[in-house]
Write a protein that binds this DNA or RNA. Structure first.
Lengths: 247, 247
DNA sequence: GATCGGGAAAATGTATACATTGCTCAACGG
DNA sequence: CCGTTGAGCAATGTATACATTTTCCCGATC
């Protein structure tokens, strides 16, 4: 990965530790030993401790009552809830954006992204790169939506939900790419994007809200599909943190 | 305040530092010096540092790019957004509770609280103690609602929003108590509580959602009233963190 | 054989010393 | 007189030593 020699030990430790957890090098339920991390990352206990506190607030590790931390495990229900919650928050963002009666100028960014997505989805055969582009543009769409809501409080809350990697808008796109009906799902998702933009342009707050919520149900559907196939589930970011009942 | 000699230094420091900020002994925009806190609380820098990191995640202090922390200030818009966000999250909780088709048994707690609130609101003249009881029962109602939603992810998200003290359900009740129409507002709020319970009992998810959102608008209305009167605003918990444009 | 207890090892909680960075203020030069 | 620069200082970032707690293992006992 890209080194950040300028960054402080604390920041580097946080990033590296987060990656260790997300890449599954630390298993769910496993105690995260401070000394162990110290040896692995070559920093002192102090930055490790700060990073662990931050990761606990993020929800990636849990605080043991006796002291210390363990890597958190997430059930299918947890992921479904996180996706639903993201949908609700994006609904609030879309509704606020719609009710602010934004000017053409303010909406240009969102229109451009929707336009780019249109061009992408219109293609017949989609390559792996196309899906990467889709994920990037999709993330941009959701980011712009949040920005247009103009609410730091909402932004902060959303950022916390998205710190669970499988709750992010693009989390299940790579799974979806493997499905025979993958292009159809993209067409539907893009129709949602267009409709949300239309609702915002016309000041239709409630419609924007409901569309954003419905949009998140696509991710939920992809989750349901993934659960039936471990290989697909492994394509999801942070897959190692997922613990299914059956497993 | 109540001492907790059993708790660790870290926990005590977190609680005490949070109180210092909420009571206004540290002003918004003021830099929180580690050494200063060390002297004030008589602990070493380590627990202070951990407490500051946690308070930063809570949103009560901001991280300076250059290092260190400052007490955060909240605008009227921030508070309004936090109240709206709470309404949206409570809407999701109510909807989930409704769609789970809870048994009579599971709903007993909520019914009891609504019953107690009914008895309280039915009174002619309300004393200060009555308002305290109302706040307690009201908090119970909102807590039970969250519990019935059965979603740890949602619970965590809500807890973070409520860490902004003026976003809590009871934050503006003391303000409202001073208004001539205070009892009428209580009657309306209680009608909301009854209706939310009814919607949950009947599995009407969308109705429960909309009612919970509408319910939070009462807090928003009380905020608008408070903003016009500094003395009333001072009754709100964490009042010292509020910075109005005019001031 | 299982359970309880004790003790050693290892982990975290806490304090503090050291390093480094950013800030203040004064003095100098333009 | 103002701007700039440098040194000193104060604050945070980092490392580590010490204290306390927890855990785990082993042996003794029932």
């Amino acid at each position: 990965m890209d080194e950040q020699p300028r960054a402080s030990q604390t920041v580097r430790t946080l990033l590296q530790l987060r990656e260790l957890i997300l890449n599954g090098e630390l298993s769910p339920g496993e105690r995260v030993s401070e000394l162990g991390i110290v040896e692995r990352l070559g920093v002192s206990r102090t930055p490790v401790r700060v990073a662990l506190v931050r990761l606990e607030e993020e929800g990636l590790v849990d605080c043991l009552p006796t002291g210390g931390f363990v890597v958190r495990a997430f059930s299918e229900a947890d992921i479904a809830d996180a996706i639903q919650l993201r949908g609700v928050l994006e609904g609030m963002a879309a509704q606020r954006a719609a009710e602010r009666r934004l000017s053409r100028d303010e909406l240009r960014g969102l229109r451009d992204v929707v336009g780019s997505l249109d061009a992408l989805v219109r293609q017949r055969d989609l390559t792996i790169d196309d899906f990467s582009d889709y994920i990037r543009l999709n993330d941009q769409f959701h980011g712009l939506l949040l920005q247009l809501a103009d609410s730091p409080v909402l932004k902060r809350s959303m950022e916390r939900v998205l710190s669970l990697p499988f709750a992010s808008p693009g989390a299940f796109v790579r799974v979806q790419a493997e499905l025979p009906e993958s292009r159809e799902i993209l067409v539907i998702a893009q129709e949602h994007h267009r409709a949300i933009l239309d609702a915002i342009e016309n000041g239709e707050g409630s419609r924007a809200d409901h569309l954003a919520r419905e949009h998140s149900r696509l991710a939920r559907r992809n989750l349901d599909i993934s659960v039936k196939n471990q290989r697909q589930l492994d394509r999801v970011p942070g897959a190692s943190l997922i613990r299914l009942r059956s497993a």
